[in-house]
């Protein structure tokens, strides 16, 4: 079955409660997201899911030269950064979009749905 990455975006700078304004909101979102993840497991859609530390904690590494060059901070300059993601394994895009809507409601953020390359598309790339 095709796999999709569902990423959630959030602000660069976080509050004491991560990407949430209040502790109540954070706890409610965690509870709903936990229930959503349980459902993904039950239905056999779950591959992986986790939240990320703040984008400010990122380091960019360029190893294409003699010595690796390290840069503090995220790769893209942006107000919003990826804050967590799911990898799901589902029959088609319609199922992925339905799950993304549920995940978005649970974690209280917008969700970007993006397909992974498949064996077929990878072979097509090699042959191009």
């Amino acid at each position: 079955m095709p796999q999709y990455l569902m990423s959630v975006y959030g602000p660069l700078e976080r509050t004491d409660f991560g990407a949430y304004a209040t502790k109540e909101e954070m706890l409610a979102a965690f509870a709903d997201t936990g229930a959503f993840n349980d459902m993904l497991q039950r239905e056999g859609y779950f591959v992986f899911a986790n939240g990320l530390e703040s984008a400010e904690t990122a380091t960019v590494v360029d190893g294409q030269h003699d010595q690796p060059v390290l840069t503090d901070g995220p790769y893209l300059e942006s107000k919003e950064h990826i804050g967590g993601f799911w990898v799901i394994d589902v029959p088609d895009l319609d199922v992925a979009l339905r799950l993304a809507a549920e995940g978005s409601k649970a974690c209280r953020g917008k969700v970007e749905v993006r397909p992974f390359q498949t064996e077929e598309s990878f072979v097509a790339l090699l042959e191009s």
């Binding site: 029959p91 992925a96 598309s121």
Partner: peptide
Amino acid sequence: IRANHVPYRIPAAAD
């Protein structure tokens, strides 16, 4: 459509 595996079907009754 190809990359996303958009299904080639009539949507379910609910949709």
